[in-house]
Amino acid sequence: MCDSCGCQQDPVPINKEKVVDVHEQLLAANNEQASANRRHIEKMGAVALNLISSPGSGKTSLLEQTIERLKGRLSIGVIEGDLETERDAERIRKKGVPAVQLTTGGGCHLDAPMVHGGLHVLEHMAKGKKFDLIFIENVGNLVCPAAFDLGEHRRVVLLSVPEGSDKPEKYPATFRSADLVLVTKTDLLPYFDFNLEEATSAVKLLKPDLPVLPLAAEKGEGMDAWIDYLLALLPR
């Protein structure tokens, strides 16, 4: 029925409706910047790794020990993501490696535009020198970083022994997005209810071809396999 005069005629439909098929990524802006970052990193001569874990799983300690083993052989740069403070970047600089601190001011993950800024600072610090490896330590969080491509070539998820072997089951999206899983602080295995086999099979259930390396950076255990993994990423 017509609203204006109450007659029995149906109103003439004025079809203004438009249907737009979009098929655009929700994170399109981030993903485009991530692709640009990847090209940028390659121009810097480097391969980049994005390290993701809960707070305190041993990302910075792993980087310190990795630098210790590779310095003199390879040129390394580090981008540190944290909620606040320069502390982690300072720990890395003490090892004689350029490190940029990105503080998210409460933000729960790094995104590609932030890393883009970090890459420029890193380049400036290196004064034109090429890099072999760039490590990006993400904000301690096992959920949000998974959705954000930063332009890395490999994504590494760390799981420390005190956290428990059920983490892969609890955070499947993050573990599925990984290229490598490191079980860290294996020196603590005797003191915690952590079953290495169980953790490995939980990871394999999510993604059967995902490699898992156990290590204890601070004790030097398992570091050789990790270093070999890194060296194999470099162009020969």
């Binding site: 990524q25 259930l205 993604k207």
Partner: peptide, 20 residues
């Protein structure tokens, strides 16, 4: 076999908008 490797599936896509 249980050795099933995920194919894609991480995507978040704005598919269609109807407007007037």
């Amino acid at each position: 076999s249980t050795r099933l490797s995920p194919l894609g599936g991480a995507e978040l896509i704005l598919q269609q908008v109807r407007m007037e």
